[in-house]
């Protein structure tokens, strides 16, 4: 029988308590169906596309393969819905300026992944904005220990890379 679980998470800065009947329920469904988050999206359920990406305590996580029981009590969860109070995070503005999407279903993952990655680079003392090649490598799961790949099917890749570079430059300036 499944084990019920109650957790309090800090979702986009706000305390939210959720109860699930099965502590194996993936974070994605908790966020979408109990906490009204639209950013994290179901794409594959097997951590191969990135559409469900969120940040858990600053770490890039694929919420489709993150059972709630593995998310610590009191953990902070950041989603695209709350990335910026006014929806004007440099990444969001850059994506609009560069018109870096078509259907945009994948955009949640690309922006949240990039937000987490740029923050990590910042914390590690990196002072230069990443090159287009580095951004492409990150989004292809070829940077550091991360093997997370991000997929886009519409073909807005070139624009997304440009938007991330623009946002990175702004964040560093």
């Amino acid at each position: 029988m499944p084990t019920p679980l109650t957790r309090t998470l800090v979702v986009n800065g706000e305390d939210r308590t959720v109860t699930v009947a099965d502590d194996g329920e993936q974070l994605l469904y908790v966020l979408r169906n109990q906490l009204d988050q639209r950013g994290p999206r179901f794409g594959c359920g097997v951590a191969q596309c990135g559409a469900c990406t969120v940040l858990v305590d600053g770490e890039i996580r694929r919420s489709c393969v993150t059972p709630l029981r593995t998310v610590p009590e009191g953990a902070s969860v950041a989603t695209l819905d709350g990335l910026d109070a006014n929806g004007a995070h440099p990444l969001q503005r850059a994506f609009i300026e560069q018109q870096a999407a078509q259907c945009a279903f994948c955009v949640n993952g690309i922006i949240m992944g990039a937000a987490g990655w740029l923050e990590q680079r910042n914390e590690s003392g990196e002072t230069a904005a990443p090159s287009d090649e580095e951004i492409a490598a990150f989004l292809s799961g070829e940077v550091g220990e991360s093997t997370f790949n991000y997929l886009c099917r519409c073909g807005a890749h070139v624009r997304m890379i440009r938007a991330i570079r623009q946002a990175a430059e702004e964040l560093l300036s």
Binding site: R38, T79, L80, L83, D84, Q92, I96, Q99, A101, A104
Partner: peptide, 16 residues
């Protein structure tokens, strides 16, 4: 002209 629905899409306000 910029895409009219894109702001909602990049801020998770858009309803798919």
């Amino acid at each position: 002209e910029p895409r009219v629905e894109l702001p909602d899409k990049v801020t998770a306000r858009f309803r798919y």
